[in-house]
Amino acid sequence: MRKIEALFAVAAGLATVSAVDGANAQQPGADPALLEHGKEIYRRECVACHGVEGDGAGPGAYILSQRPRNLQLGVFKLRSTPSGENPTDQDLFEAITRGVEGAAGAMMPSFASLPERDRWALVAVVKDFAFIEDPGKPISVPPRPAHADLALGAQVYDRLQCASCHGADGMGDGPSSLTLKDDQKRRIWATDFTDGRYKGGAAPDEVYTRIFTGLDGSPMPAYGSKATPDELWALTEYVLSFGATSTDKISGDTE
């Protein structure tokens, strides 16, 4: 680790030099002190997986069932923004806070135990690595209907051919699940809904958002323009129903 920290110090030092000559002056509103603070937190908490350069190739990356994000690419699965758009600051903050879990195992741990200011400082670091100067505009998620229309949800699941990857029973074993690759051409699995675990969390609003925007960097595409909000809500309820072991889970009181 000593070597890594030394490298990071060199990188940070020279980055400061280039900031002086204006190369880093493109982030209006960015708080340099917050970014510098974030780099300290990043060095302590994040380099093991995301690497000194933020390229997702830290020394611990190889043990993970899905590789850490290459932050330099600026592509994020958990967004409230359309496919291809940058995430919002809030999206990044929530992902850092919540971590990323999924049917393929826990991937990124929750950093909820860090002080809020530290987590916002990490958001600044991620945006710096990813060159995010123009956060995307979030989609609007209409209020969750009081009644879950599971029959309609099943129809939409069929029409949008979710079973192609996620399987007719939601177990992640559809015919295309065998050939899925992530953006770095590594094997990736379709989420098994019966576990009730989702990369962006099991809150209904989150599941709705994942279906709408897709998970960039994974094979999951955006379906937002292919169904009405009512249909997307019915589909969300249907997806959640695969993982429900109690009425609490169906009503979304799992958080």
Partner: peptide, 20 residues
């Protein structure tokens, strides 16, 4: 599913479903 090739990395540009 469109990727911009940057070096050896593939950067997702967009990924849109067309089920019909």
């Amino acid at each position: 599913h469109a990727y911009e090739l940057i070096g050896r990395a593939r950067r997702t540009m967009f990924n849109i479903a067309q089920p019909q």
